[in-house]
């Protein structure tokens, strides 16, 4: 889904090639257009199939007679766009995930670096972390309800717990895999721990850290939606589950689609930021500049 960004970075390169070899560049543009046509066509076929199956109330092993059709879902989506509650739910879920995720990013990166750089801190902090790690964050819901005074804090905690582990673990591995050469170079310039941390460890581990951030964002969405379904009073997850309990299936699908779009937007932002910050990585030709 990140192709638009990729094409945007490719565009200048393609333009430069245009002057040298117009034939190949034009061929590439035509191939690109054909690619887009195929992708859009593929989506259209799926939607059309869905429409046909639901309109004809097909029962072919799977039952499509109760599933809302795309037109019903679109109508419901149009209706919800006109209500204030829809935007309130979106905002609520976004605030929850961004708070939990930001806390997880800071704590995950800091702890990942600490336990990888200091054996002592590793011995001290890793045992409790390793014991909690295999527990799926969503299974922490009872604890969250018991420990936190408000549901809101509990939901943010669940989101935090979900995103924290992948971020911490990838940071730890990235720090361990860092070549010692860069650190040696900075030390022979008279750089101390802080210089090594700031000039070598943090920038050098960014590619690995961003891997963790992407995974973390994915699981954070799973958990924030689940937590909202269990204990929220607002939010896309709560609204979707609520629609299900009152048998409003088109609204359930609108909720699902909204979650999908939000998830995609946040993941794409992380991806884009990661590319921006790790532009120094050796990559394939073309996307380099």
């Amino acid at each position: 889904m990140s192709t638009p960004a990729l094409d945007a970075t490719l565009a200048p390169a393609a333009g430069a090639a245009d002057a040298a070899t117009p034939g190949t560049a034009r061929a590439r543009t035509t191939a690109g257009l054909r690619g887009w046509a195929v992708r859009l066509g593929s989506l259209a076929v799926v939607v059309a199939l869905w429409q046909w199956l639901t309109a004809t109330d097909a029962r072919v092993g799977l039952r499509f007679d109760r599933l809302p059709s795309p037109t019903e879902v679109a109508a419901e989506f149009g209706r919800q766009l006109g209500t204030g509650v829809y935007y309130l739910d979106l905002a609520q879920s976004m605030i929850r995930i961004l708070t939990g995720f930001a806390l997880a990013a800071v704590a995950g990166i800091a702890l990942g670096v600490l336990v990888a750089r200091s054996r002592w801190i590793g011995d001290l902090l890793l045992p409790p972390i390793e014991v909690v790690r295999p527990i799926p964050a969503i299974a922490l819901v009872p604890i969250a309800i018991l420990v936190f005074p408000t549901d809101e804090q509990g939901i943010v905690f669940i989101t935090f717990a979900a995103a924290f582990f992948p971020i911490m673990v990838s940071t730890r591995h990235a720090v361990r895999a860092l070549p010692t050469l860069w650190e040696d170079a900075v030390r022979t310039m008279g750089g101390g721990r802080a210089h090594v941390l700031w000039n070598v460890v943090l920038p050098g581990t960014l590619p690995g850290v961003f891997g963790g951030l992407s995974v973390g964002m994915g699981v954070a969405w799973i958990c924030v939606i689940s937590a909202e379904m269990i204990s929220g009073e607002f939010g896309v997850g709560y609204r979707t589950w609520h629609a299900y309990t009152v048998v409003d299936y088109p609204a359930v699908l609108v909720g699902m689609a909204s979650i999908g779009v939000l998830g995609w937007v946040t993941s794409a932002s992380i991806e884009l930021l990661g590319r921006r910050l790790t532009r120094w990585l050796p990559r394939g030709e073309g996307s380099a500049r």
């Binding site: 050469l181 860069w182 040696d184 170079a185 022979t188 000039n199 050796p282």
Partner: peptide, 20 residues
């Protein structure tokens, strides 16, 4: 007892910080 900026080092290769 440790590295010092008095004693600079040039390494064989790839010792430049690639992000700078």
């Amino acid at each position: 007892t440790g590295p010092s900026p008095d004693r600079a080092m040039v390494f064989q290769d790839d010792a430049l910080l690639p992000w700078r």
